[in-house]
């Protein structure tokens, strides 16, 4: 089995997220340079956080974190006219779902992926895994900034 995470294992997620914005809103999202989140567990700093937890050949999590205004704009682009919390949560869940589908295709069947769940602002931090530091991939879209936090290590 592979032990080290390869660049393409991280790129998969940034591709999935830009693909989502391209296909669902028709507008390109710009990925900025990725970096490592160094101090302590990754704190989530946005209004809505959709998390998928991964176990199997790799363990860890992938979290899409976005401010409310960005999601409202996405909803608008997708033709929604209702902007309740529910709808915002719905779209974050859908994005997380997309990430999980892409992850399964990339890493193969040996991966088990829990259904996406939402984390509330300020209440929780990402579950930490020992060893590797989480990657943050900032994402610019329409002047808003969202982030993808990828924390993966080869499974036990």
């Amino acid at each position: 089995m592979r032990h080290e995470l390869r660049p393409e294992d991280i790129e998969v997620f940034s591709e999935a997220i830009t693909h989502f914005f391209n296909t669902c809103t028709g507008e390109t999202a710009n990925v900025r340079s990725a970096y490592l989140i160094e101090h302590g567990p990754a704190v989530l700093w946005n209004d809505f956080n959709g998390l998928i937890e991964i176990s199997g050949a790799y363990t860890g999590s992938v979290c899409f974190s976005a401010p409310r205004a960005l999601l409202s704009h996405v909803l608008l682009k997708m033709g929604e006219s209702v902007f309740t919390d529910d709808r915002h949560a719905d779209i974050v869940g859908e994005i997380a779902n997309t990430l999980s589908g892409r992850a399964r295709r990339h890493f193969g069947e040996g991966l088990s992926i829990a259904p996406p769940r939402l984390l509330n602002y300020g209440e929780q931090s990402l579950p930490n895994i020992s060893g590797n530091l989480p990657y943050a991939i900032p994402l610019g879209w329409h002047g808003y900034e969202a982030s993808l936090v990828v924390q993966l290590a080869p499974g036990p």
Binding site: E4, L5, R6, P7, D9, I10, E11, S14, E15, T18, N30, V31, R32, S33, A34, Y35, L36, N132, L133, Y135, I137, P138
Partner: peptide, 16 residues
């Protein structure tokens, strides 16, 4: 572009 630099972050992580 930003996504070209993902391998840099990964290499950084490996080195670290």
């Amino acid at each position: 572009a930003g996504d070209d630099l993902i391998p840099v972050a990964v290499a950084l992580s490996t080195l670290l």
